[in-house]
Design a protein around this nucleic acid. Sequence first.
DNA 1: ATGGTAGCGCTGCTA
Length: 263
Amino acid sequence: MRIATWNVNSLKARLPRVEEWLGYARPDVLCIQETKLADAAFPSMAFAALGYEAAHCGQGQWNGVAILSRVGLDDVVAGFSDQDEEETVEARLLWATCGGVRVASVYVPNGRSVGSEHYEAKLEWLDRLRRHLVSTCRNDSELVVCGDFNVAPDDRDVWDATKLHGGTHVSPPERAALAALGEWGLVDVFRRLYPDPGLYSWWDYRAGDFHQGRGLRIDLALATEALADRASYALIDRFARKGKGPSDHAPLLCDFDDPAVGH
DNA sequence: ATGGTAGCGCTGCTA
């Protein structure tokens, strides 16, 4: 099974490129972030035409997460387990079960600047995700949390650790919040397969960062051991970051072998 | 060069 994740930076602006990518990458599941659409504007029919069911959690203008699947889409749940009906929560978390795997599409808050209230909210969001996993999921089940984490797990994941020091995405508290998900039982699938530095998934649009190789690896697929054990291949598709009108993120895809058949 | 681009939506915010 091929599971992918892509921050598309507006699905309205990116739909032709997403359709094109689905046509050649053919993931079984695609987690999308930053649709920037209201639910009513989500292009379900375009995806249905390509063989995908879809679930969307949107708010329009900002955020918005979706899951596309051609291997079933069941038990769709938006948001955190501890949300009450009164609480207005940003559209950053969506769950579904696809082909026997519990899948989450997440868009972690950016944090803006270290020490700001937005940064504190980012740390709290990551801890709330951890608490959600602890209270509602089993770490021995087949589960994968995919998305834009807005955190580069370690210095291999950034183009220049010295220049980025003191900023968001690399601060020790952010990395600790990510590591706490690992302690619960999630494995960085891409990193397990490829230990090399310099493999990025996001490049700022400005100053020619993509062409200068100034990127970060912040788009991750974090799988439980039961699923990560079957990971056979992963790719950050840099081709999808090239050409006219790309997202600032490249898609990440991960291939999982079918479970061994008992006898 | 404390710069730069893209998207949303219409002025400035978010990333």
